[in-house]
């Protein structure tokens, strides 16, 4: 796994995720990266990567909605100007 730092330099994060506990995809996977979003601008996140942690918070065992909420709040918070994703291909 490697850590990808996504700087919040756009209005949206710009990723679509699929997966979560009790589904066929047990951990959230990136299925879309939207042009012009912070993730696209970062250039290091790729479609197909699996997100293990967000800012050190593990997504293992979390339902889809819970994982999505953690990522959304990490992007919304003003405490940091970036998000650290621990991802694996």
């Amino acid at each position: 796994p490697n850590v990808v730092r996504v700087v919040k330099n756009a209005n949206t994060l710009g990723i679509a995720i699929e997966g979560g506990a009790n589904t066929r995809q047990p951990l959230p996977r990136i299925v879309t990266i939207q042009k012009g979003g912070s993730a696209h601008n970062c250039g290091q996140l790729k479609v197909g990567q699996i997100i293990l942690e967000v800012n050190g918070i593990s997504l293992r065992g979390r339902e889809h909605k819970d994982a999505a909420k953690i990522i959304a709040e990490a992007f919304k918070t003003k405490e940091k100007d970036h998000i650290d994703f621990l991802v694996v291909d």
Binding site: T12, L13, G14, I15, A16, I17, E18, G19, G20, N22, T23, R24, Q25, V31, T32, Q34, H64, K65, A68, I71, A72, F75
Partner: peptide
Amino acid sequence: VRERRLTLPPSEITML
């Protein structure tokens, strides 16, 4: 393991 995974529901997709 594969059979158990296939019996699980597909996940929803969320745009963030």
